[in-house]
Computed example of a mutant assay.
Amino acid sequence: MNIKDHIRSIPDFPKPGILFYDISTLLAHAEAWKDAVGQLADAVKPYKPDVLVGIESRGFLVAAPLALTLGLGFVMIRKRGKLPGDIITHNYDLEYGSDTIEIQADAIKPGARVVVCDDLLATGGTMVAAINLLRSVGAEVVAAQFLIELAFLKGAEKLDVPVNSLVSYES
């Protein structure tokens, strides 16, 4: 099945000049979504992760069903103030400002093999921050997994782990 056939492109969203790749059409098509999760599982299995991590919020849509399919736990990286209990915070800069992500302090056991998941890889800034946050709590980040990669933005070049993408756009 060609997963690209189930991803809708919306021009000028969220602002003029941006082409938004909408995964809601993929999620709404049960057969295509099941096939996509199966393809993601096949890509992740060789890394033998102990746990999958999803980045808020669409990364949760990738990591949670994938973790369930693989029989693994799922951990969330969220924006500031969204997680209860003791948390570890990481501040980082983006092209348009700065942001903060957090993880619960006890979510990852030191030495755990982790694959980090998100819906889309663009410039790579958020994924770099997530990898740094995970390493700060003792995780061994073994790969980054995406549904979509905007290859022309060269985000994968910023990552020091293997990058897997189900769908890639070259322009």
Rank of each mutant, 00 (worst) to 15 (best):
P49Y: 00
D119W: 00
L147T: 15
N132K: 15
F13E: 10
G97P: 14
Y47M: 06
A28Q: 04
D5M: 07
V51S: 07
P84G: 00
D12L: 02
D12F: 01
I88C: 12
A107K: 05
G125N: 09
G85E: 03
R78L: 15
K48Y: 09
T89D: 04
H90I: 00
L40M: 08
A122C: 06
K45L: 01
M1V: 15
A43T: 06
L26P: 05
T89Y: 05
S9R: 09
D99F: 12
L70Q: 04
G71K: 03
L66Y: 01
I10L: 05
N164T: 09
N91Q: 09
D86R: 15
S168D: 11
T89N: 12
D42R: 07
V37H: 09
D118A: 01
I3W: 08
S24H: 08
A63R: 15
A64T: 13
Q145S: 11
I23E: 14
Y21R: 14
N91C: 04
V141R: 06
A144Y: 09
A143L: 12
D5I: 04
E31D: 10
L72T: 00
A43P: 03
I87Q: 11
Y92Q: 05
S171W: 11
L72G: 02
V114W: 02
A144S: 14
L147E: 15
D106Q: 13
G155M: 04
H6V: 01
P84N: 01
D160R: 06
H29S: 11
Y169A: 12
A129N: 06
G155K: 06
I7N: 05
P16R: 01
